[in-house]
Amino acid sequence: MTTAHATTRTRAAAPRPGTRRRTSSSLTLHGALTVMAFIAVFPIVWIAYISLGGDKFDYQHPARILNHPTLANYGHVIQDTNFATWMLNSVIVALGTTVIGVLIAASAGYAVSRMRFLGRGTLMYTFLLTQMFPVAVLMVPLYKIMANLGLLDTYSGLILIYCSTAVPYCAWLLKGYFDTIPVDIDEAGRIDGLSPFGTFWRLIAPLARPGLSVAAFYTFITAWGEVAYASHFMLSEDQYTLAVGLQTYVSQFNSQWNYMAATSVLIAIPAALVFYVVQKHLVAGLTSGGTKG
């Protein structure tokens, strides 16, 4: 069986039959795609453009910004606010979640994919179930548990919570991806005397890199953009993540949209970098259940 990645390549190389139809319809196709791509990108470009305006009402008069664009907002946000601290907190929490989350999701996903142990079906269903919990049910009890464990206002507390939201989907995704890797490889590893974990770690994990990078991307984005838990469990201002910090801007500066826009752009940059690194793998990694048929 070939992985989806290989399929993509062979497909691109093979010439398609019926080329005439393509030339006639390609113009409409490109037109439609351009419109969709424009809609997809417009809000992001727009906020980057607004962030160059010096006045907080410039978003109502976008033409004004064109005449005197300025980077003053960025200067203010970086130098005169806690932005750097919040950024550091967010990076620690998001990277911590990514490393721990992908590791435990991958090991569980591998076990479910390869070993027919009692309760694997229940486990997968439980994963699905955890996606259904509304924030409101868990908030008070979770707050108490965090307080009892001394995890309030700490990075590790938030990392744990984010793991619980991101890991179930990642385990599902990775299980599907591991299913596409031939079992022969595991058997070869076992004959060479590797333990099951050794097989997973040394043979399967490197092969599953597209799947793992998608899981990492998903986990990172989830942790990077989470608002509700962060704003109730991070209590002191020097522990705030960016999502919480940005909210304080609104009251603090009385809705100075230009600063918020500049901060938003700065927040989007790390996420965009992660995205750029993994985007080649995205389609292949998400194939999951599909290749299995």
Binding site: V112, L138, L142, I145
Partner: peptide, 23 residues
């Protein structure tokens, strides 16, 4: 299959503590 369960244990612990018990 104790090995399989051991590999699932971290996830089960996290979910149990953060989702199951609060639920």
């Amino acid at each position: 299959y104790w090995y399989a369960w051991a590999m699932c244990l971290p996830v089960v612990l996290v979910l149990g503590a953060i989702v199951g018990y609060p639920l």
